[in-house]
Amino acid sequence: MTDSLKHLIDRLKRTKTIASQPIHFETLSSIDKFADNDFYKAYLLGHFFRYKLDSDNLSADDKTFLIETIKSNNLEAYYYLKTKPDDDIFGTLIYLFILVGLVAIIAGTIQLSNGYFWYGLGTKYLVPIIREGGYKIILGLVFFVGGLIRLRHEIKKKRFLNSFLTSTNNSN
């Protein structure tokens, strides 16, 4: 599914009602940033318009565009909070990336410290071949740093979702 609700959120952020209230503008920006797919965006938009800002405050054109976009993408069940989207199953992969990165960094460091390295020319092609622990360290850094960046994003996402959904559930 394409990210079609991004255009909806961008249009909603430009409306007079939302642009005049920074808290609503920031909430829509966070929904756009942290929702992984259109299902979750529709679900969070449903919470937003049900508990934070009544959609009747929007102009008739913007409200029509909102409803038509939700219907055209078959997201009514999520928007009207009848169905909750599935949680992301790739959360455990983040920790696996961090662990693999650490193991590769340690293995590469041990290999370099033991003096095990080799340099030569390939017999099939005339290209230099370097085999040492350095490539393991570089690969490990890519996995480790990438995993940490994604973990940081997931922590921010979890904080936003907890605060947003808790505040919307407490307001009813």
Rank of each mutant, 00 (worst) to 15 (best):
M1P: 02
M1H: 09
D3C: 06
K6D: 11
H7R: 15
I9V: 10
L12Y: 10
K13V: 08
I18C: 01
A19P: 01
A19H: 04
A19S: 14
Q21L: 14
P22N: 09
P22A: 00
L28Q: 10
S30P: 05
K33T: 06
K33Y: 08
D36P: 07
D38T: 08
K41C: 06
K41L: 07
Y43A: 01
Y43I: 15
L44R: 05
L44S: 00
L45G: 05
G46R: 12
F48K: 01
F49Y: 09
Y51T: 03
K52N: 07
D54Q: 10
D54C: 02
D56G: 04
S59I: 10
D62Q: 01
K63T: 13
T64C: 05
F65P: 07
F65C: 02
I67W: 06
T69D: 00
I70C: 05
S72Y: 00
S72A: 06
N73P: 01
N73V: 02
N74Q: 15
L75N: 00
L75F: 01
E76N: 09
E76G: 00
A77C: 13
A77Y: 12
Y80Q: 07
L81R: 09
K82F: 04
T83V: 12
K84G: 03
K84W: 04
K84N: 08
P85G: 03
P85L: 08
D87G: 14
G91P: 03
G91A: 07
L93D: 12
L93R: 00
I94G: 14
Y95C: 02
Y95M: 07
L96H: 09
L96P: 13
V100K: 06
L102F: 08
A104L: 15
I105T: 11
I106R: 12
I106H: 05
A107G: 10
A107W: 06
G108T: 03
T109S: 14
T109P: 02
G115W: 01
Y116M: 11
W118D: 15
W118Y: 03
Y119C: 12
T123L: 14
Y125P: 00
Y125M: 08
L126C: 12
L126S: 12
V127A: 04
V127M: 05
V127I: 10
V127H: 13
V127E: 12
P128R: 04
I129V: 14
R131M: 10
R131V: 14
E132D: 13
E132T: 14
G133M: 02
G133Q: 03
G133I: 04
G134W: 06
I137V: 08
I138H: 12
L141Y: 11
L141R: 09
F144L: 05
V145S: 09
G147P: 11
L148H: 11
R150T: 07
L151P: 03
L151E: 10
H153G: 13
E154Q: 08
I155K: 01
K156G: 10
R159I: 15
R159F: 06
L161V: 05
F164E: 09
F164C: 06
S167F: 02
S167E: 15
N170C: 02
S171Y: 03
N172E: 07
N172D: 13
